[in-house]
Simulated assay, not measured.
Amino acid sequence: MNKFLTIALMSFSAATWAQTNELVVSAFGGAYTNAIKAHIAEFERANDVRVKFVPGSGADALAKAKAKQVDVVHADVGWANRGEAQGVFEELEPAKIPNLATTFARARFSKYGVITNFGQYGIAYNPKLLKAAPTSWQDLLNPAFKGHVTTAGFDFANVELLVLFAKQNGGGEDNLEPGFKVMEKLGQNVSVFYSQHPQLLDLFRSEDVWLARWLRGRVDWANKEGGVDLKFVVPKEGAIGLASTVHVVKGTKNKALAMAFVNYLLSKNSQTQYAVALGYTPARADLDPKTLGENVPYGEVVVNSLLISDWKKLAPNMDQIKETWEKRVVH
C-alpha cells in the first residue's frame, strides 16, 4: 500500500510541476535582462510561475507581441507609442499593480504602460585627450574633434538629439529640417557610428574616439572594465532621457500573471537592482538614495530634467526620419 501511495504522490508531484505556469517576457538582452534575472526567483516562488526571457527590442519585440509569442514586452518610448497606436497592449489595472502609485509622475507613461527606469545620455570623454571638458551638445560638432567623435547608429537617442538641435534653430517635432542641418555637421565629425557598447569601449581604449554620446551607467561600466579612465558630463542643455517601458500584451492568456510581473518590476527590490546593476534611475519615488550607489542620480528633479520629446508626434514618422538620417547624416 505504501509503495502505491509513494508512486501516486510522485506522479502527482510531477504533474503539478509540469502544470507550472510560464510567463514569457520580451526584454532587452545582456545586462538589462541579467539585472531582472538576479532576483526573479522571488517572483517565481510567490506566483508559482517560471519566467522565460526572450531577447527583443523595437520592431522585433512588437512582432512577437502581435503574434502572441510573449506575455510582457519591454520597449523604449518610440516603440511603446507605436505599440499603443497599433493596439498591441492591454490597459494596466492599478488594482493589480499597486506599485504604480509609488512611481514618479513622469514614469506613468500611459494607461497602457509604465516606465520602469530612466537612464541619462550625456557626453563621455577622455580627459587625457581634451584640454577642457565638453559643456554642450554642440561640442560634438567642434571641427577640432573631427574623426574622434562618435554616437550610435540610428536610434531613439539620436532622434532626441535631432529634436534638440531642431528646437535650437526654430524647429521641433513637427519640423525636423533645422535639426537635420545640424546633424549633417555631426556626421562629418564621426568616422564610425558604434553599434555595441563593447565596440565603443574598444574605440576609447585605442584612443580613436575622444568623446561620444553615451550613457552615464555605461561610462561607469567602461571604467570598471579597465583600459580607460573616462569622465561623464551632462551638457548644459540637459541629459537625453533613456526611458524603458513595460507593457502587458493584449490578449495574453496570462494576463493576471503579467500584471503581477509589472508590479514586481516596480517593487523596491527590483527597482534597487536596476540602479545597482545598471546605473539607471529608478522609477519608484520612495527609495533610500543610499541604497542606490553613489553614481546613480535620483529624485523627481533628476527625472523631470531629462530631455524626452513628444513621441506621439515622432513615432508615426520614424521610417521617414530613419531614411533621411541614412541619406544625410551617415557618410
Rank of each mutant, 00 (worst) to 15 (best):
Q69F: 00
Q69C: 03
G78H: 03
A46Q: 12
V51K: 04
A63S: 12
A75M: 06
G83I: 02
V72Q: 00
D60R: 11
E84R: 13
Q69P: 02
N47S: 09
D76F: 03
H74L: 14
R82Y: 09
A61F: 04
N81S: 13
G56H: 01
K66F: 00
Q69L: 02
K52D: 11
G58P: 10
P55C: 08
R50G: 10
G78C: 05
D76V: 05
I40K: 03
I40L: 07
V72E: 00
A63N: 11
N47P: 08
A61M: 10
A65P: 11
A59R: 15
A65I: 09
A41P: 11
K52S: 10
I36T: 11
A61N: 07
Q69I: 02
K68C: 00
Q69M: 02
F53K: 09
D60E: 13
V72H: 01
P55Q: 11
V51Q: 06
K37M: 11
G78T: 05
A46D: 09
R82K: 15
G56E: 00
A61H: 06
H74D: 14
A80T: 13
D48N: 14
N47Y: 03
D60T: 15
R45T: 05
A59E: 12
V54M: 02
V73G: 12
V51L: 07
A75V: 06
V73N: 08
A63L: 08
A41H: 14
A59Q: 14
K52V: 09
D48V: 15
V49Y: 10
K68M: 01
A75G: 06
D71W: 00
G83V: 00
A59I: 10
G83A: 02
A65M: 13
G58V: 12
K37C: 10
S57K: 10
A67L: 01
V51A: 06
H74G: 11
D60G: 10
S57D: 15
D76H: 05
K66V: 01
A75D: 04
G78E: 02
V49L: 12
I36A: 13
A38V: 12
V77E: 05
A46R: 12
R50C: 08
A59H: 13
V73Q: 05
I40H: 04
A59D: 12
N81I: 14
P55N: 13
P55D: 14
G83N: 01
F53I: 15
K64P: 07
K52H: 12
A59W: 13
K52L: 06
K64W: 02
A41N: 15
S57I: 09
G83Y: 00
A65K: 10
A38K: 07
W79D: 05
D48I: 15
R82G: 09
A80R: 06
A75I: 04
D48M: 15
P55M: 08
P55T: 10
G56Q: 00
D76K: 04
H39G: 06
A41K: 14
A38G: 12
